[in-house]
């Protein structure tokens, strides 16, 4: 019987210690919200600059207050190419809404001419940008294509997706969430 009692005492000690830790955490770790830029969900989306097809520099701060769908791609990436028609469909559906689609070509890993030719051939009309300096690739830690970030109107990354899975239905649902329709 004493063994059972010993175990019960251990349980009580652990619970008391846990209660103490909760109290200690409340005093010392009440986590003030930090505004820190990092390419991960829950953090502020890093600011970046890209070029449009005319070579004009566009800063992401231009879209401050708007939800952003940031899609990074290259013309040699088959998964990216499979997603592009879905983006076009979503763009046509949401072009009247206050949401920004940014399909950023990671140009340091691509040939801009080839990418532009691909866009022209497929007659995509959604906004295409070119990361000529590697600003997006570096700040968003792009390791695979496509990598997609959903950024809410407060500039916080709410989702990061690497690879495929960006069906039209998924994109439409996420756009609706970002616009607060759901």
């Amino acid at each position: 019987m004493s063994k059972q009692r010993d175990i019960s005492i251990i349980f009580i000690i652990i619970l008391v210690f846990s209660s103490g830790w909760i109290a200690y955490s409340a005093i010392n770790y009440s986590n003030p919200i930090t505004n820190f830029e990092a390419p991960f969900p829950g953090f502020d989306a890093p600011q970046f600059s890209v070029s449009d097809s005319a070579g004009i520099i566009i800063n992401s701060s231009n879209f401050h207050g708007k939800p952003i769908l940031l899609f990074t791609w290259t013309s040699w990436c088959p998964i990216c190419k499979s997603v592009m028609p879905n983006l076009q469909e979503v763009y046509l559906e949401f072009q009247e809404n206050d949401i920004q689609i940014m399909a950023v070509n990671i140009s340091l890993q691509d040939q801009v001419e080839v990418a532009q030719e691909y866009i022209a051939q497929n007659q995509f009309t959604f906004p295409i940008y070119y990361d000529l300096t590697g600003d997006v690739a570096n700040k968003y830690n792009i390791r695979g294509f496509p990598t997609t970030f959903l950024i809410n109107s407060e500039g916080i990354i709410i989702e990061q997706l690497v690879g495929g899975g960006l069906s039209t239905a998924y994109l439409l649902s996420q756009m609706s969430i970002m616009l607060g329709d759901n």
């Binding site: 997706l161 899975g165 960006l166 069906s167 239905a169 998924y170 649902s173």
Partner: peptide, 8 residues
């Protein structure tokens, strides 16, 4: 609904 997307 039957899309193979793993995100939905």
């Amino acid at each position: 609904i039957f899309s193979l997307s793993t995100t939905m």
